[in-house]
């Protein structure tokens, strides 16, 4: 089985085990983000979503790259993998293929995912592997203290753009759509309830789910367009057809409004399921009853 494993609350209650609450996902390390950082909202929403889904921490892997938001695995009780800059997605893919029973959540920033790691994004998308990618978009390099990122708006001043940013910013949700992701959503770190639900839906989605989370940087993000975000943010209209990728793209790239909610979702074969249909990808579950090397066949092949 390739999807995540939810605990059964009723069975837990009968066994006298209290259901997991958000607190049960508190990691060993206290977050080191600046006070007021949007990432706190994302972390809380994630913990609430995990509690809602009753995912056991020992069946949860949280993978990240490098950056402020990539510190997240340390703050969540789980099997965490804080790797190198830009490589969170291929690492997460390997984690899932290594043990398909795990729920795998990836957290990373706009620089990690769209600059140094941009080459991995389309390829993990097109495999449609069942992992959930939270791209915490703060439109700036925060950990290195204020350089231009791939989503920094034009015209503003950064430490590496003393005459103003010249380049056009990338649109994370728009990119995910154009790469053909099977689930694309956008959330906002100040809208906790909605974000929690998006994460729940993303984890439940059978396939690759990408959630762009607008998560302002309070220290270096001034001028990054977040001051007007409250006015710009609007929920995806009820009339939007989530199976209509073109309509989703129009919403995702709207120049004036930041639409939040599920932009697109569809149901299509998922990588691990396909691999398992051919007998492979049994992860660490390979056991005595599993397939063995057919020595006679190999001898035939090489003689």
């Amino acid at each position: 089985m390739s999807s995540h494993t939810e605990l059964d609350p009723q069975a837990a209650a009968e066994a006298g085990v209290a259901p997991l609450t958000a607190k049960d996902y508190k990691g060993r390390i206290k977050p080191i983000w600046c006070p007021g950082c949007g990432d706190y909202g994302v972390l809380n929403s994630l913990m609430n979503a995990l509690a809602h889904l009753q995912i056991a921490p020992d069946n949860l892997a949280v993978v990240s790259g490098i950056g402020c938001s990539s510190r997240l695995p340390g703050f969540v009780k789980s099997y965490g993998f804080h790797g190198v800059h830009g490589r969170a997605l291929p690492v997460a893919l390997g984690v899932k293929l290594g043990n398909p029973r795990l729920t795998v959540v990836v957290a990373g920033g706009d620089g990690d995912g769209l600059s140094i790691g941009a080459g991995h994004f389309p390829h993990v998308v097109r495999r449609n592997i069942d992992i959930t990618y939270l791209m915490l978009d703060n439109r700036i390099y925060g950990l290195t203290k204020g350089q231009t990122s791939p989503t920094t708006p034009r015209g503003i001043w950064t430490k590496t753009a003393p005459h103003g940013v010249f380049e056009y910013p990338m649109n994370p949700a728009g990119l995910a759509l154009s790469y053909g992701a099977s689930f694309v959503a956008r959330g906002y770190s100040s809208q906790l309830k909605q974000l929690q639900q998006l994460i729940v839906d993303g984890i439940r989605h059978r396939g690759f789910s990408m959630i762009q989370v607008l998560s302002p940087c309070v220290t270096f993000g001034k001028g990054c367009g977040f001051d007007t975000l409250a006015e710009q943010v609007k929920e995806v209209p009820d009339t939007h057809n989530r199976q209509d990728s073109r309509a989703a793209y129009m919403l995702a790239t709207d120049p004036d409004t930041m639409y939040t909610g599920i932009l697109y979702e569809d149901d299509r074969p998922e990588l691990v399921e396909v691999l398992q249909q051919h007998g492979g990808t049994r992860g660490r579950e390979i056991d005595e009853t599993g397939p063995r090397i057919d020595v006679e066949r190999l001898i035939g092949r090489f003689s």
Partner: peptide, 25 residues
């Protein structure tokens, strides 16, 4: 045939990243 996985990655960086992910698992 023996329950394993071969994954052709998009480059060598991703190859080793995925390999480390699977090994971690």
């Amino acid at each position: 045939l023996v329950g394993g996985t071969m994954y052709q990655a998009e480059d060598e960086i991703a190859s080793l990243a995925a390999t480390l992910g699977a090994s971690f698992s």
